[in-house]
Every structure is written in structure tokens, then in C-alpha cells.
Design a protein around this nucleic acid. Structure first.
Length: 379
RNA sequence: GUGGGUAUGGUGAAGCGGUUAACACGGCGGAUUGUGGCUCCGUUACGCGCAGGUUCAAAUCCUGUUACCCACC
């Protein structure tokens, strides 16, 4: 029995959307879900209480960053990540694989693992399936992710195949190294933009009996239709009784389409990152709060939003905070954006429950301003 | 009052006779998808205090004028 299990509650009549529950050592959570990102053991600018208020469920932390600073040994001494950062709901740690490949200037990939230089002090570091699992066990999140290579886009077939096969071997080693009974381990499907490699990756990982599965290597620069196609090809080969987590994806349009293709979990830095750059998310699209048109706009970001920010502050005020570089602005927009996405996921869950997800999806695209991203199969 | 100096966009300033007046900040847009509050991209002076003059050519040279700064009475 895995420490984290997925309970399938309901499937949509058309499309592959599904309503489920994730049972974890820190509670049961509703899917489809959006998971706020708290890379360095904090969702930037927000307190745990503020996250609870917006009904945040599972949040992410990052192995690469915490491994380099403050070190997993210290977190272990503190009593684990939950205690260390005082967040008592679900938690997931990324394996560090992605960062090694995206942040690492000099890195050397071998069968054994990856040698790389720390972005903090330039020191030489080594991460492998065994090291990543050990670090993640010390961090102690409910869900740990297998150490994988996120293949850049574009990559040719031969490299993708070689890398995907290695990621599969690394997955096996992660499973073998994993010992903590109160923590689940998720495998990660790779395969780049090649359907047959996606299938190969999914099938071989399926045999290993992970608690759930991440879908990696998507949203790395490929066109949206390609991503949706790959996602479609990937979920077809996955176990219906286990959670599917589309890694690093989390704009509203991608979430709707991801859910429609059978995804249960999403995470993304997008809402919190763009918040810090002055962009608010709405059901229509982005609202760049620092634009001059909002200088004297005393309405809230969204009239219909119930978040703390929208209940109390105007666009003009938030714009002023950004212009004056006051940190409260970062917080207000982070609160709004996270609230928006968590609420968005809730609306999706309700729609699936009430058998109207197809309608929800259609309505979403009718309101969405980026019409060019509209999928073709939306009758 | 006398002598000297400086006047270039929102700001700090380059340019010292000859391509479309550098560069930085700011402003205005945009990007941002397993997080560096980072970063990246585009745009932003039909004009060089004002008025004349010299020259094929003037922000650059000359004259006058105005403002400010420094020194001395």
C-alpha cells in the first residue's frame, strides 16, 4: 500500500476529465487540483495562514534549491519540511532534475547521475537518483518525485530515446532507494515529442508500481497543439487508478485542456511569478496592473473575485504599490492570482461532478482573450 | 557691479564643424509554465536655453540676450 493513493470518483461523459481524491498522510485533497509552488520552503510573499484561507491543498517545494540551501540535513533536524515551514497540508517535492538541467551552467550527465555547479556559490555538486531520493526523504514531503532528465525542446529522436531510457533506469533506482513508508514516490513519464517514446516511457514506468505519475518534458517551448497531442498520447497509456500530475503547467487554458485530457494535478510558478511582475490573472486573461490605464481605476482587479485583495483594494492602489516598489503589491497580486487558480480548479471539480465539464470548457474558451490558443477539437 | 564657468529628453549626462543626437535611469508597451522579487525584448529628443550670424554643413564657431553657479568688490 502506498502512502498516497488516488481515489477515482467520477469520469466525464465526453473527454477524459476525472474527479478524484488524493489521500495523503497530511489529509485528503480534491482533484483536479492546482498546487502552489514554494520552491525554497515558502510560497513567495505568503504565509501558511494566507494559503489556508484560499483553500490551498498540496504545495510544492524543490529538492535542488533546498539541497543547496539550507541543506536537507538541516530540514531533517528541524523535523521535516512540514514543521520547518509550518505548513500542515499536503506537500510534494520536485526531484531537482529540472533545475539541474535548466539552471546548471556546466553539467555533466552520466549513467550514474549529474555533476553540476551550484548557482549560489559555484561549487561542484552531484545529484543522482539515490541522492535525490535520500534528500527528499530527509525533506519529508508526502510525495517525492523520481529523478529525471527534462529533455529540452527541440531534441532529436535519438537523443530523446537515449535520455528517456535513462530516465526509466533512474526511475527504477529511485524506487529501489526509496525507503520511507509515510512518503509516496511518483515516477515521471518522458519521451519528448515522440508518441512512441511517450508510450514506451509510460508503459515501462507503469510496470514499476509507483504511487502516481508525473508527466514531464512538456510546456518546454513546443506549440500548444503539440503539447496537447503529447498529453493525449501519454494519458492513454496511464493507469486510471493512479494520480496523473502534469509538471510545471498551470495557466488557465492549459489546465482546462489538461483536465480534459485526464490530468489530476498541476503546478506552476506562473501565478506567483507574474504576480511579482505586476500581472493579475482573470477569467479573460492577463491584466497588467502597472499599465497606465489603471492609474485612476478604483475598481478591484475582478468585480466577481472574493479574494482578500479584490475585497479590499483597487487597481489604482495596487498599481501605485508596484510603481513605488512596495512589497505589499507583490503580496496582493500573489494572493489574488493563487486564489484565482485554486478557485478555478474548484470550479472545474464542481463542473465534472455536475456532468457539465464540456460546457464549462466551452464557456471558458468563449471568455478567454487569447483566441488563437483555442484548441481545434472544441466544437 | 567686475571676472570666470555652465546651459542637450522626465533625470544624470556623452557629443567639441560633417552618417538617422551615445549611454544609463525613468516612462510606456510586451515576454515570463517542475521560481533568482531576477531577467529579457521593443519603444521613448523632427531637436541641443533664447535671438541673430559665419559655413556647402552648426548641439558643436562668432555676437547678443536670459537663467543658474563660483570668485572678487
Amino acid at each position: 500500500m502506498h502512502a498516497v493513493t488516488y481515489e477515482l470518483i467520477k469520469e466525464a461523459k465526453q473527454g477524459k476529465a476525472r474527479r478524484g481524491r488524493l489521500h495523503t498522510p497530511h489529509g485528503t485533497f480534491e482533484t483536479p487540483m492546482f498546487m502552489p509552488v514554494g520552491t525554497q520552503a515558502t510560497v513567495k510573499t505568503l504565509s501558511p495562514e494566507e494559503l489556508y484561507d484560499m483553500e490551498s491543498q498540496v504545495i510544492l517545494a524543490n529538492t535542488y534549491h533546498l539541497f543547496l540551501r539550507p541543506g536537507s540535513g538541516l530540514v531533517k533536524k528541524a523535523g521535516g519540511l512540514h514543521k520547518f515551514m509550518n505548513y500542515n497540508r499536503g506537500m510534494l517535492t520536485d526531484s531537482g532534475g529540472f533545475q539541474v538541467f535548466s539552471l546548471g551552467e556546466m553539467r555533466k550527465i552520466t549513467e550514474e547521475g549529474v555533476m553540476f555547479r551550484s548557482h549560489i556559490d559555484g561549487s561542484k555538486q552531484f545529484l543522482s537518483p539515490e541522492v535525490s531520493v535520500r534528500v527528499q526523504e530527509e525533506l519529508g514531503a508526502d510525495i517525492a518525485m523520481a529523478f529525471d532528465e527534462c529533455i529540452p525542446y527541440p531534441s532529436d529522436f535519438n537523443y530523446t530515446k537515449k535520455s528517456t531510457e535513462r530516465t526509466t533506469r533512474w526511475a527504477e533506482r529511485c524506487l529501489k532507494a526509496h525507503t520511507r513508508p509515510d512518503q509516496a514516490l511518483f515516477g515521471i513519464v518522458q519521451g519528448g515529442m515522440f508518441p512512441e517514446l511517450r508510450k514506451m516511457s509510460a508503459e515501462s514506468l507503469l510496470e514499476m508500481d509507483f504511487a502516481g505519475y508525473g508527466i514531464g518534458g512538456l510546456s518546454v517551448g513546443e506549440p500548444k497543439p503539440v503539447m496537447y497531442d503529447m498529453l493525449d498520447q501519454t494519458t492513454d497509456w496511464m493507469d486510471k487508478q493512479k494520480a496523473r500530475y502534469l509538471m510545471g503547467v498551470g495557466t488557465p487554458d492549459c489546465i482546462v485542456e489538461g483536465v480534459n485530457l485526464g490530468v489530476d494535478m498541476f503546478d506552476c510558478v506562473f501565478p506567483t511569478r507574474v504576480a511579482r511582475n505586476g500581472t493579475a490573472m482573470t477569467a479573460r486573461g492577463r491584466l497588467v496592473i502597472r499599465n497606465a490605464v489603471y492609474a485612476e481605476d478604483f475598481r478591484p482587479i475582478d468585480e466577481n473575485c472574493s479574494c482578500y485583495t479584490c475585497r479590499n483594494f483597487s487597481r489604482a492602489y495596487i498599481r501605485h504599490l508596484f510603481k513605488a516598489e512596495e512589497t505589499f503589491g507583490l503580496r496582493l497580486l500573489s494572493i489574488h492570482n493563487l486564489h484565482f487558480l485554486l478557485d478555478f480548479a474548484k470550479k472545474i471539480r464542481d463542473a465534472i461532478e455536475q456532468d457539465r465539464f464540456a460546457e464549462f470548457r466551452k464557456e471558458f474558451w468563449d471568455n478567454w482573450e487569447e483566441k488563437d490558443k483555442r484548441p481545434e477539437n472544441l466544437n
